[in-house]
Design a protein around this nucleic acid. Structure first.
Length: 201
DNA sequence: CAGCGGATGTGCT
DNA sequence: GCACATCCGCTGG
């Protein structure tokens, strides 16, 4: 079934989706819908086109590399939660926690294609900082449960499968992790080739 | 289009 | 105390 469902019938992906090896979650997040509700009448939909996998304590590029520090503790907890951090003192980046409780892992969401709800000011969602800005995600959203809808539906954020087929996938080294030695070269960035919203670098 | 600087949390020394 | 970070918009050539 490739028919798009109406926004009201889009339900959050379950925790079991996130409780798997991080690379598998990263692969399957491509093409999924970000669903953001910011008020009774404002719904934003965007399709994920670029992600990066961060493989936990052993990954020299991951914030989890130092173990469960105050900032990174959430990555060691149960899957399906949101990890938001501030980078360079001014940009936010959003990650989805993966793997079973006790094992660190996360997928950085880097870019998405706007589908609905950006009409007033067509916002580019190209790059992790602009993606967070466009969807209104800040450190105040750190720790949100991505598997539960907010009953009031005034402030909601989750990922849904709208039935669209899995897109083609390409892989490359991750961006901005040159300090990570051998881990910097690992091809853990995944994107939809040809998408205009994917980082060109 | 390469270069640069902004503004601040985080973790190590 | 301090170097540096999962970035991006502006500047000048």
């Amino acid at each position: 079934m490739t028919t798009s469902r109406s926004p009201s019938s889009l339900s959050p992906l379950p925790r079991a989706f996130y409780q798997r090896p991080t690379t598998a979650v990263a692969h399957e997040l491509l093409g999924k819908l970000l669903v953001r509700r910011r008020g009774p009448r404002k719904i934003q939909l965007a399709r994920i086109v670029e992600v990066e996998a961060y493989l936990g304590e052993r990954d020299a590029a991951s914030h989890a590399r130092r173990g469960p520090t105050p900032r990174a503790t959430i990555m060691f907890g149960p899957p399906g939660f949101l990890y938001v951090y501030l980078i360079y003192g001014m940009h936010h980046c959003m990650n989805f926690v993966t793997e079973a409780n006790g094992t660190a892992g996360a997928v950085l969401i880097r870019a998405a294609t706007p589908i609905a709800g950006f009409a007033d000011r067509p916002r580019a969602l190209t790059g992790p900082g602009k993606l967070c800005a466009g969807l209104g995600i800040t450190r105040a959203d750190n720790g949100r449960d991505l598997t539960r809808r907010n009953p009031t539906r005034r402030n909601d954020f989750y990922v849904a499968d709208d039935g669209s087929p899995a897109p083609r996938r390409a892989a490359s080294a991750r961006i901005g992790v040159d300090y990570a030695g051998a881990w910097a070269a690992r091809k853990l960035r995944f994107y939809v080739p040809g998408s205009p919203d994917v980082c060109k670098a």
